[in-house]
Amino acid sequence: MNWGVVVFPGSNCDDDAHDALARIFGQPVRMIWHRETSLGDLDAILLPGGFSYGDYLRGGAIARFSPVMEDVVRFARDGGVVIGICNGFQILTEAGLLPGALLRNRSLRFICRDQPVRVERHDTRFTNACDPGRVLHIPIAHNEGAYYLPGDQLARLEDRGAVVLRYCAPDGTVSGEHNPNGSVNNIAGIVNEAGNVLGMMPHPERCCDAAIGHTDGRLIFESVISSFVAA
């Protein structure tokens, strides 16, 4: 399958994403500059982490109007697979492809550490390689990571099982105590209604190579790749 990684001015996890996909998984990957207007013939798009446009105004708010985003939105609406990681998640919410918004961390501190997250849905095309309830250790690195959605909409999000990942304790316990940033319901990652767009704050691309620590991030990419093989 063919991947595209969108590069915005200020993206800084684009190379890591390319490295994970190309070197670890042997996938063809095209880097897409944000000024391009057509994605071309691709199967999956990754919006990487970083600080697009210096996070001016709000994280993702300006990147969402980059020329390439029109085709990303079309691609997503046509059912194309889109993964937004960290700043990429913020861009997806700003673009309206995912509901909600990401607020300043409750602590007002930039948080950079390994974080356990529990897989709430193992039947999505982003998590099918995980056992039910599996706890993944994936690094987080963000200043605006507190997921927020007003109460009634949050209830609908939960009802339709859109929450894919939740911050938790190493043993999988989900509680306020193990919520690093103040996200409502410990939400770390969600999918859209059609199940083809994933937004997550943790960085799976940073934990694919055993040489630098955990490899739990592989499960996310393996899931997507196997969902294409199965299709």
Binding site: L57, A61, I62, F65, E94, G100, A101, Y148, L149
Partner: peptide, 8 residues
Amino acid sequence: TLLANENI
């Protein structure tokens, strides 16, 4: 469109 996010 841009300056504010109506969600928050």
